[in-house]
Design a protein around this nucleic acid. Sequence first.
DNA 1: GATTTAAGGTCGCACATTGT
DNA 2: ACAATGTGCGACCTTAAATC
Length: 606
Amino acid sequence: MDMTKTIAFNFGSKEALQICKPPDSWSNQYRYNIAKKRGMQYGIGAPMPSISNFRKTIDPARVKSFIDLITSSNIIQDMPFGEKTMKLSTGKVIPTPNVIRCIAPAAIVRQYDQYCDENSIDPLASIQKSVEGLDYFIVEGGRAFADLNSVVSQLQIPKSDSDKILKDLSDSKRYLKCDYKVHLETKSDIPDHCLSFVLSDQDKLLQSDCLDHSHNKGCKNCQILTNVLETIQQKLNDLKDKVDENLFDNMLFKTSKADGDILDWKKHILRSKNQARAKSNIISELSEKRAFIMVDWAMKFLPRKYREGQTDWFAKRGINWHIAAIDSRGNKTYMCKVVEECESLKPTVKSIPNITSYTNFSYSESGLTVWRGFGIGKGMHIPWSKVTDLSQMITMTLKITNTSENISFRDIKIQHIKPQEINQHEQIEMDISEDDSFAISNPENSCGIFCCPVSGCTKRFLKNKSLEDHIIIGNCHFQSKFQSTSDTYKNLYALKVTQAVGHCFNLSMNAEETTDTNILMKEWGLKSRKAHVIFSADQKKFLNEKFQIGQITGKKEDPVSVSLEMQSAVLNGKRRFKREEFLVPQQIASYFSRYSRQITPSIMME
DNA sequence: GATTTAAGGTCGCACATTGT
DNA sequence: ACAATGTGCGACCTTAAATC
C-alpha cells in the first residue's frame, strides 16, 4: 500500500494505473482511490501509523504452544552459521539464526495435530499440503501404526480387547515420538534405553561392556510396544483358518511390515541420539589449538548465499565441498575449502569392507579407527596400508579463508537444560528496545507446558500444581494490546531460537524391576541392511505393466497404491502374488527409477 | 513476475548374487 | 577367482508450485 500511495501522489490516476499495469482496472482504480485518501491522511509514502487496535482472534496460549513445538529440538536443528531476518510491521528487523527443519512441513502439521490432541489444545487452522516425500523413518513408522490400526479393526475380537490394543498402539506411537528420545541414556539399567548396550556390535572391538551397571530393569512403555505387537501377531494367528486366505495374507504382510518399520523407527531415534552426543562431546572438548569442523555438502546452502543462477552454480561442480570451521576459544570462524582433488587418487584407494556400517572415524599416523556408534567400544583399527598405497598418499590441503565473504557465522552453544534450571534460564534478558515492550519479556511465560485456560492469559507453567495455584490466585497476565499479533510471535520465535535451540532435556523416569524374557540383542540398535531380494519374473512383469500405464497416460502410478494392488492382483482366477512376493513402496519406486533409466535410451534411438 | 522451495526423477556407489 | 548383473541407498538435478 505504501508503494501505491507514493505512486498515487506522484502521478495521476492514469499514469499510476499504467505503472501498475493492472490486470483488472476496476479493482486498481479502487485501490488507487484508497491509496490517495490514505496519503492525504498520513503523508505521502509514509507508513501508516499502527494505532489501529490489533484484533486478537487467536488465543495467544495456543500460538505459544505452537511456537514451542516448532522450536523444539525435534523439529529444528541449529546451523552454525547463517542468519535469517524477520521484519516486524514496525519495520524493525530482528535477526534469527539459521535453522534446519528436520521434518517435512506436512509431518509437522501432523505432529502438531497430535500434540494438540494430547495436550487438549485447540489447533490453529491448518492447511493440508502435500504429504509426499517425508522423512523415511517417520513416514514408514507413521504408516505402520495406521496399518496396524486397520488390521486391528479387522480382527474379529471383542470390542474391549481391540480398544485396549488401539490405546496401547497410540500410546506407543506417542512414546516413540516424544519421550523415548529423552529417556535414552549412555548407561542405563534398562537395556532398551542403554545406548552402549544396544549399539554394541558382535565384534569385540566394537562393543562396550556395560560393567558398571546391570540391565535388570525394564521400561513400561517399551514393554507395552513389544507386547502390543506380539498381541496383534497372536490374534492374527488365531484368525488364520477363520477368514479368507487372501485377506489373511494381506493382513499378515501388513503386520509384519509394520513391525519392521516401527523397529526401524525406534533404532533411528536411538542412533540419532548417540550421534548428537558425539557432536556435543567434541565441541565441549575443544581446546585452544583445536577446531570443530562441520563438513557438509556445500551445495546445500551456498547457492542461496551467493545468489547465483542455477546454471552458474552447477558449473562449479568441481569444488568438492566447503567446510565451516569454528575455533571455540578465540571465537574465530573461518571458511575452509578442500582444494586438492582426489580424482587421481581414486585407482589406488581400496574400499573398506562394510564401509557403510561405520559411522565414526578417527584418523591417526598409523591408520584409521572406525566405530559403528560413537563411544561404543575401542574401535577397529585399520592400517593405512590396507586402504591405500602408502607411496601415493596425498595430503589434502585445507585452505582457510576468513569470513570476509558474506557468510556470517554464529557460535555454537551447548545448552543442556535440566527441568529445574529452566526458570532460571528463562531469566536471560532479551535485547528489547525501548519502544517495544513485549509480553514475552515476562520470564515465566515462554516455557512450560501447562497453559492458563483463561483466554488471553499468557502464563504457562512447568508443573500442573503451579497452574492450579495460578488459577486460584487469578493473577493472569494479558498480552499487550499495542502490538500486532504477528509481531509478538515473531519476537517470541526469535527469542526461542536464539537462546535455546536444541533444548533437549532428559526426563527422569520410573524404572521397574523386570523379569523380561524378551532380551534384546546387543547389536539391536545398529543399522541393519535390508535383505537382498531378487524380483521374480512375474513381479517384474507386473511392475513393467504398471510403468507402461504411466508412460501411456502420462499419469504415473503411485508406488504406494501399486504396492496395495499387488496384494489383491488376480491372474486366471488365482491370486497372482503370494505374501512373500509382495513388494513395499520403496522397492517399487526404486524399480521404476531403474526401469525408466533402462528404457529411456531405447526410446531415444527410435 | 521473479525468486525461493520442495517434490520427485535420475544417477552412481556399495554390496549381494549369479554367471563364466 | 573374477566379471556381470541386480538391489538398496543416498546424492544430484530438474521442474513445478509456493511465495515474495
